[in-house]
């Protein structure tokens, strides 16, 4: 309300230096918070000034959908991505050329890569070996797979039969006569041409499997037309080198792998 007694107050203005409860100012105002926008005038030469002046007083203003008004705010609180923690210390110094330390950095990288590669290859090899060896035969099976024979127990001219891997095994202590006979057989005439030397390591000892190559019967030792082995099933005659000489069998008796660990022992398998 504008009262006559207050009118004079509108022609002066006073500000209170120290506030108290007695003299409270009349109106309460809420100061708006404003975001300052500065549009500095850019003209500082006569030419740029004159270009900034519109010629047409009938000014028109345009706007449109999407991006017609673009406001860019500059931010100072955005962290610039920093990868220093992950960078090689040799390349962090901006005053040094990174090419200077290139060789040492490369050597280190190659060394680490090479070392890791070699050790991982070795680890991989041992793992694979372990798995693959689990598939092979166990020790008890392997023990059964070999047979050791004392040769002194076998007299000359005698063929002894052993059981080896479920099959009969013939060990024959050949006489010098038999050896010379078998050595002189003409290989060309044989059905399965093999010289005696190919079938024995020590000419005194013939080691063959006692399985007829015809249908798998067990031949009889020291019989037949050639003084070697004779298969009673279908009449196959083998000589003292275990070679097929007569009858239906197509091949010589099979020679297993064997060694002589000492002079008087034989190891088959």
């Amino acid at each position: 309300m504008l009262k006559p007694c207050t009118v004079s107050g509108y022609f002066k203005s006073a500000s209170q230096v120290v506030s108290n409860q007695l003299n409270v100012s009349g109106t309460v105002a809420v100061l708006p918070t404003r975001k300052p926008v500065q549009i500095p005038f850019q003209g500082n030469s006569a030419l740029s000034l004159s270009r900034a002046l519109p010629i047409n007083a009938n000014v028109s203003v345009s706007s449109g959908p999407a991006v017609s008004t673009q406001i860019r705010w500059a931010h100072t609180d955005i962290n610039v991505p920093n990868f220093d923690d992950y960078r090689n210390p040799a390349t962090k110094n901006p005053n040094k050329k990174s090419t200077d330390s290139e060789d040492s950095r490369k050597n280190f990288t190659y060394l680490v890569a090479g070392g890791l590669g070699a050790s991982s290859a070795y680890a991989a090899k041992s793992v694979i070996t372990q798995f693959v060896s689990s598939m092979s035969a166990s020790a008890d099976v392997l023990a059964l797979a070999k047979i050791e024979i004392k040769l002194a127990d076998i007299p000359e001219g005698k063929s002894v039969t052993f059981k080896w891997r479920g099959k009969p095994l013939f060990i024959r202590h050949r006489t010098p006569d038999e050896i010379s006979t078998e050595q002189s057989v003409a290989v060309n005439n044989l059905r399965d041409p093999q010289h005696d030397n190919e079938r024995v390591q020590n000419p005194e000892w013939l080691v063959v499997l006692g399985v007829c190559t015809h249908l798998g019967c067990v031949p009889i030792a020291n019989s037949g037309d050639f003084g070697g082995y004779y298969c009673p099933c279908h009449g196959s005659h083998y000589d003292a080198s275990g070679r097929i000489r007569k009858g239906p069998a197509p091949l010589n008796l099979e020679v297993p792998a064997y060694t002589f660990p000492t002079d008087d022992t034989l190891l088959v398998g």
């Binding site: 003209g43 500082n44 006569a46 000034l49 900034a52 002046l53 010629i55 047409n56 007083a57 009938n58």
Partner: peptide, 20 residues
């Protein structure tokens, strides 16, 4: 260092001519 430009506007019933 000043700049001046004559301005004019033509409207349907009147207009302006002058200087800025």
């Amino acid at each position: 260092g000043y700049a001046s430009s004559a301005i004019s506007a033509t409207y349907s019933d009147t207009g302006l001519v002058g200087v800025l």
